[in-house]
Design a binder for these strands. Sequence first.
DNA 1: GCCGATTTGTCCGTATGTATC
DNA 2: CGATACATACGGACAAATCGG
Lengths: 242, 242
Amino acid sequence: MPKAIYDHIYRDLKEKIETEVFGYQELLPSEHTLIQEYGCSRNTVRRAISELASGGYVQSMQGKGVRNIYQPAFQTAFTVGGIESFLESAVRNHQTPRTKVLQFAELEAGEKLSRKTGFPLGASLYYLQRLRYLDDTPLILDHNYFRKDLIPGLTPEIAAHSIYEYLEQTLGFSIATSKRTMTVERVTQIDETYIEMNDYNCMAVITSQTFNDDGIQFEYTQSRHRPDHFQFQDVAVRKKTG
Amino acid sequence: MPKAIYDHIYRDLKEKIETEVFGYQELLPSEHTLIQEYGCSRNTVRRAISELASGGYVQSMQGKGVRNIYQPAFQTAFTVGGIESFLESAVRNHQTPRTKVLQFAELEAGEKLSRKTGFPLGASLYYLQRLRYLDDTPLILDHNYFRKDLIPGLTPEIAAHSIYEYLEQTLGFSIATSKRTMTVERVTQIDETYIEMNDYNCMAVITSQTFNDDGIQFEYTQSRHRPDHFQFQDVAVRKKTG
DNA sequence: GCCGATTTGTCCGTATGTATC
DNA sequence: CGATACATACGGACAAATCGG
């Protein structure tokens, strides 16, 4: 719960951009002006602007100003921007989520699994298979591996609701960084068993390693999406070559 | 070409992480120590660390330190992290790139095209269709739209080499922000004409809008990849809910 | 549990450089 | 050329979280 000043300014400017108080291609007020408006230091204003820039809202131009590059018409519904649980994403998109736990097992990370997941050799893991429904249509098949020692008391009931909520609310444990890889893979027997593929022979696959706020990896997940309901957005900023 | 101090520190620490001078899960030297080592201010050190964090190299923990979360074994070859041209990406992955220009046309942005691409209504555009080979195998089919007024003198010959290089080297014009969307779509007739699909009936599609350093969108591209050679990596950081 | 030392997080004010207009 | 705007960097202050004694 950041009540930091820079975060307040960030949210305020973001909202003004989203509601088109500042139009597309317009310049934002100068740093000097914003300092007056918010009654804070230059660093604080700059931090807020810098976060807007990394989110693709604005672009700073030395000597010129800060341009709004946010196009409201391009904001599509089903996004997977930051770290977001299935439940949170569904709610944000006004969809009804449901989860069916297909498998709930415990196992140990052998050499092969350790190399694949990034968990230390011999780690005790939960393995879950979960089918995710949106508005009663099965669309996503998840294979989750969690470190057992970091998630005490995980049950199929919790897994059917929201593991992230359990982590954050009950265990007071927060998610910090997630490294993800997106690929396209052929459908498997299991995919076809649970998901109506409509002739698609591929799945959109997100493989992720997730770290808690101590920098310890507690999750490895392969999330297999039906292609026609998959979308992933991203903003990249070019590094100056030097 | 940033010769900024923070960038020097960033690169230095990044290399020490990549070459395992700092091991996975270890703590980096404290800010205080780094200040001594580099003989600079705390803000400068913090900026370097902050960039490492957003790249998924480290994670800061208040009161504890900064943990290295970089796993060398997980660095796969074919990545599409930041903004990178086809040519640059191929070189980085030690592959031989080749481009064949299939179409080179000029057209005007009508209402439909304007809505699709984000270009202003009536803008004069170049439309290109390009087939991209890696090690002599056709793998990617690009549909590019460029704003003609921003890219004077574009020719099929330039398009066959590298448009980005032309922009940066010849026009002295730099790329700043790119907004991208990844989806999976069914193969089209055109895809199948040029790319050997091996029974795949989908393509991995990256749709991107790219802005120059004046914050003006100069490009809209749909890049269609054969699934078995597509991979996209990403690092996300969880925002504290508040 | 308390306290002090350490470490990161936030914020301020200022100075100087660079690019634009 | 001077004025404006963003970029980099410094040094200092205080807060918050952690850790060891």
